[in-house]
């Protein structure tokens, strides 16, 4: 049974890691979580990013955040990747299945996944 004692242990472990975690979040994954995004399936997309960024050991450099309506409701779920000094990348019609490639190729490899991006 999950207990508060277990949570206490997590706290102690985390407190020792705090210094490490404060390394600047150079990349931000922003998931649109307004009514339009949620209805289109943004929740599993967000959760896939949270899981894969952390399981993939990227937590020190990548922050996963939520935002409201980005203004592209017909293209939801929309995910933006923001990185200092680079142009923002917008992924459209995302699914949880597409997240693995974005994490691997874009967040780890530094190369945006062109086929998931919005066409001009």
């Amino acid at each position: 049974m999950k207990s508060l004692a277990e949570l206490q242990a997590i706290k102690e472990k985390m407190q020792n890691k705090v210094v490490l975690r404060e390394g600047s979040g150079e990349k931000r994954v922003v998931v649109g979580m307004a009514t339009c995004g949620i209805a289109a399936g943004a929740r599993p997309v967000l959760n896939a990013f949270v899981e894969q960024v952390n399981e993939g050991g990227l937590a020190a450099t990548v922050t996963v955040t939520q935002t409201g309506c980005i203004g592209l409701c017909q293209f939801e779920p929309v995910v933006e990747i923001v990185e200092a000094g680079k142009e923002k990348v917008t992924y459209v019609k995302m699914t949880a299945d597409k997240v693995a490639r974005v994490v691997e190729e874009h967040l780890k490899g530094g190369v945006p996944v062109a086929e998931f991006m919005m066409k001009a």
């Binding site: 049974m1 508060l4 277990e6 206490q8 997590i10 706290k11 985390m14």
Partner: peptide, 27 residues
């Protein structure tokens, strides 16, 4: 609020904490 008392300055959105919450509710 109860979790926060245990966690003190450890944020609720830490991945380990989110996993604990998911496991707690699943159980």
């Amino acid at each position: 609020r109860e979790l926060r008392q245990v966690l003190e300055d450890v944020p609720l959105d830490s991945y380990e904490v989110l996993q604990w919450i998911e496991g707690f509710l699943t159980e």
